[in-house]
Each structure stands twice: as structure tokens, then as C-alpha cells.
Design a protein around this nucleic acid. Sequence first.
DNA 1: CTGAAAGCGCTTACAG
DNA 2: CTGAAAGCGCTTACAG
Lengths: 340, 340
Amino acid sequence: MVTMRDVAAEAGVSAMTVSNALTGRRPVSEPTRKLVLETVERLGYQVNVTARSLRQGRTGVVGIAVPTLDSHYYSRLSHLLIQAFAESGTASVVEETHASREGEIAAFRDSRLNAYDGLVIAALGLTEREIDALSRDVPVVVLGEQELHHTVDHVSMPNVAGAEAATRLLLDRGCRDLALVGFPSLDDRDELTQPEGAAFALRARGFSRALQGTGVSARAVHAGVTQAAGAQCVQDLLATGGVPDGVFCVTDTLAFGVVRELANHGVRVPDDVLVVGFDDVEDAQFHIPSLTSVAPDLDELIARTVHLLRQRIADPGTRPHEVTVSYRLVERESTRRPGR
Amino acid sequence: MVTMRDVAAEAGVSAMTVSNALTGRRPVSEPTRKLVLETVERLGYQVNVTARSLRQGRTGVVGIAVPTLDSHYYSRLSHLLIQAFAESGTASVVEETHASREGEIAAFRDSRLNAYDGLVIAALGLTEREIDALSRDVPVVVLGEQELHHTVDHVSMPNVAGAEAATRLLLDRGCRDLALVGFPSLDDRDELTQPEGAAFALRARGFSRALQGTGVSARAVHAGVTQAAGAQCVQDLLATGGVPDGVFCVTDTLAFGVVRELANHGVRVPDDVLVVGFDDVEDAQFHIPSLTSVAPDLDELIARTVHLLRQRIADPGTRPHEVTVSYRLVERESTRRPGR
DNA sequence: CTGAAAGCGCTTACAG
DNA sequence: CTGAAAGCGCTTACAG
């Protein structure tokens, strides 16, 4: 392997000068600079980032820790974060936490070990207290859903407001027998063993708020977070009280499973039941029927996240920020009642 | 930060002994080992992986380079690879190449710089010759579609055979006016500027092979790789010769766009047109209609890839392997002609 | 079983 | 503008 020393010897300068010519950290005379760069080119030298990192105490890489990449939402989020960091000149790598406490602790540990200069984490398994403690050593932005003690930068989704708006739409369209799919109870204090618990509890709270004082009946079902889980929820609804006339799903993924399983039972959307999802993943526009969904402003989410992390890396002392991004309710076929 | 020296001083041993107690590389007497581990625990010491990597010349991390994470197929593939490497005790990080030559070169460079001990790359932008040259310095397994010179380990999809089987199904179901969606020509030698060119050309070849000697007419359309591109292809078909009676799409993603846009024009699947996709992403089962698709054996793909890379890291001298995984054709509603 | 010395390849601080 | 020395925190030889 060609090292900086080899280049220096070949060019007849010191390693320092090679380093300076390459990084531009200190000025180098133009002829020397040209000579060095030519030699670098000729020998095919490439800087050893491990050595640089050890010396500098930082790697120039930020970590992105998400529960899983096997999810339309989190894979897209990771993609957008990578893009945005790249545009601001920062390399990033993605790590899966499997939504587990252990996986999330590992992400913090990897950051602290100089592997990353900063961390964006969609934390689902850790408690607020644990995040507070772990984030002391590492510049971190927490994405998502927890209600933290304001000791760490936090960018969250419009869970309550978005869910409330979605549910209001169902009420406005005349629904009087609603179902909440994806959270086991209408009381958001009920704990959910699923790690997405906190986010989904807030969406359940929005659902319940919209119902307050309306006298509209509602049931809650939960079977997991996948499309198959959405299908299972429909079976549970059918078994326990028949078909509702409106369904709010805490994610689009669940909604796709719901619509599909309703079709398996001959129940049509929107003719017989109206359905709304949350996240507005790309597929929502392409399904048949296309899916009405709460669309959080991902551009805002990404921009704020990248900005906050860069700021915290640059100045770890700044006061933590709390951001909730805005949303739009995008109405599509799944809530357009034909002929009413 | 607590270093190994601190632990050594505190425990009254040498740094060597701390290292050995931690790694188990050399035997350490049981009392000493206990003392060291206790001290490590008490001081909260964590090994600095950057320093270890610099000294060892390797990081214990493998790179996974995919075109984008904003894709059902590649995000799922990344997820499965991460899982499989984790199960075999190997950490991995994901990098996006944006399907560009530059991005793929960067992935090789990052590997060579000691950032990764090995690389799995879904290469789309590089030529065969470039891959041959770049892979000389790095243990690498190429995923996907290129027909290489057998100088590098290569795991590929059943592109030709899968596409041929999919097209045969359409013919068996009585289709006599076919369309190929996702490749611009029926001649697989035609270059596609899209980086997925090589894979899609092979799928086009399978399509053409199935047609040979049947006298069945066929058109080819191409507008990109997204669901929106699939929709665009339908518009192009309608403008240039009307609705075909069978469509083979080179990916499921395109197929979803096709089915959706057909519905926008009042054309029903499978009543008026049969549609088949490729990849068998999870959504294929949940769309309405559910999508018939070629399902490459991803478990096999993952297992072979992980095994080949570990083998090549352990012994860079072994002869390169060429693997094409098997597939199943999964028939669903999109090709079940009602009442015929 | 244990240790003192050297060095992985850079960059920082000190000098000129 | 340029360089010699030191050191980031480990692990690899070499010794005992």
C-alpha cells in the first residue's frame, strides 16, 4: 500500500507537506502543491482514513440508526437522510437497531467509539431516561415519537394532530362506527409492547380526541405493524362486531393490509368502508383504491434533523431543540364516497 | 476518555494484558483476567475501534453498496444482508451508490481504505472491465446482473429464465398481443441508459425467447424504474397501438404503476389485461389485484453471498464462483382470467 | 503467563 | 512556506 511517506519521499518533501497539499489546511507553494498532487496521482496514493480518524479523533461520518430497512417508511427516511447529509458534505452510514433496546444502545456505543461524529436515531426501545443518559457523550438527534425531557435535540412527527385530522375526515364523511387499527386501546396510556408504542399511542390519542363529544362508537385492534397484521386486524373486527364504516390505520402499511383483507371478504373501499392511513408512503397513490393519508412534511423533517445534528456537532453546548414537523392530509379514493 | 493504558495502570498490569484479557488472543491467568474485566467495567472502558483497526489493518465491518434505499427491492435486500451478516458475527454498513459509476467507485475506494474488510456491491454503473480491475484489491461479491469475466465472485438473479417463464404464462393464458414494460427494445443488445440496463436487458431477452416462433405480436416501452414510470408506459402504449392483452413488467414496482394507470383509463386487470411482474416484493400479495410475479430465491441469494464473501476474505486466492439463484413463478389474481 | 518496545499512517504543536 | 518530532490508542513481534 502506498503511504503518505512514500509520496513524500518520491516528491522530495516532508509528509507534512503532502498532508497540507492534500487537505489545504496550511498553505503550500504552488509549484510544490502541483508536484505533490502529480506524485499522488502517479503513485495512486489514497489517504488512510483510519489513521486520519485516530489522529483527529473524529471520522467525518455520521450514523443513522433506524429500526429496520425492511419498511417503506424507514428505508425512504434513511435514503432522504443520506442524500441530505451528502449534499452538506457529510458521509453517513445506516445501522439497523431492530427496534430493540439493545440495538439502540449499540448504536450509541458505535458512535462513542469514534465510529461516528454524530448520530441520528429513531429510538423506539429506549426509555426517555436512558436516551438522556446515553446522549451525553455523543452529538445526537432523536427522531420520532417519544416525549423527552428536553435534554436532547428531538424532531417529531405530527402524531396527535395528524391522527385527529384523519379521524375528523372520516366523521365529516359521515362515518358513525369507527375502528382504530394498530393500537390495542383507545386509551393512549395503555402500553404497547410493540416498540412503535409511543408514536402509535399518540396517534391513538389523536383518534380519541376527534371522537370526543361526538357519541360515535369506536373499537381498537392491534396485531403488529406489517401488512399481514393489518389483514389480521380486519379478521378480528369481523369476528367481534362486524364491519365498521370508517377505519383509521396508524400507518399506511397497515392500511394496505386492511383494504386487501376487506376485499377478500367482499367488502369494498370506499363503497362500504372508508379508510385512512398515516405516513403517505409513495405506494399510497398507486394502490387501488389510492389511499387517503396523513403526509408529514418529510422535507422539513430531514432539513431540521440534518441542521440540528451539524449544529450540535459544531457546538455541543447549545440548548436542545424540540421540533414537530407539519403535515398535510392528502385525500384520495379510499375516502371518496361514491354517490353520496 | 478512558484508554487501555488507564485500565492497565488502575489494575497494575500492562496494556498488553488488558488487551489479551479482552480479546482472548493470548491466555491470561484467571485472577488477572477477573481483575482486568472488573476494572474495565468500573472505569467504563470501551475499546477504541479506530486504533484497533489501524493496527490490525482491518475493521471487522463489511460494506453493502446498493443503488438506493428508496426501493422496495434494494431496501429489503440490504435488510436481509445485514441480518445474515449479523448472524455470522459480522457487522455491516449500507452505502448508496445512486447506481452511478462514481458512487460505485467510491464504494470500492471506501473498502480499500480499510473502512471495510469486504464489499457486497450491486453494481450497475461500472463496466465489467472496471469491476475486474477494482476488485483486485478488495474482497468483493458482485450482486446482480452483469455477465462478468469470471474474475470475481458473482451472484446473479434468474433474469432470463424467470422472464421467459413469466412470458410463457401470459401465452398459456391466451395472450396474443404482448407488451414489455421497462426495457426500450425487444433486442437485448440495445443499450439502456438506465443503470439497471444489464438486468433489464436479460429480462427482455427472456421475454423475446418465450415469443420465438409463436407469431405473437409484441411492443416494448420504457420510461424509467419507478411506479410513475410504469404509469407513463401505459400512456405510451395507449398512444401507440391501444391496450395489449398481456404485459410483462421487468419489476413489480413498474407493474404497480401499470395496473394503476390502466385503472385510471377504465381498463381492468385481469379482466381486460393480464399483468406479471418480477421480484415478488411483499406488496405483490397485498395489491388489488394481487400481482403475479417471478420470485427469485432471496434466501439462497443472501446465503450464497454471505458465504462467498466470508470465504474470499479468509482466502483471497480461491477461484471465483458464479452463482445464479433459482426462482418460482408465483401466480396471483393479476393473471387469473375470470370466466375463460 | 506477562511485559517493554515498536509501529500502524496519519496530523498536531512546536520551530524556523 | 516547510520540516522534525511526538503521539492518537491500540496490537504485533520479540523477550523472558
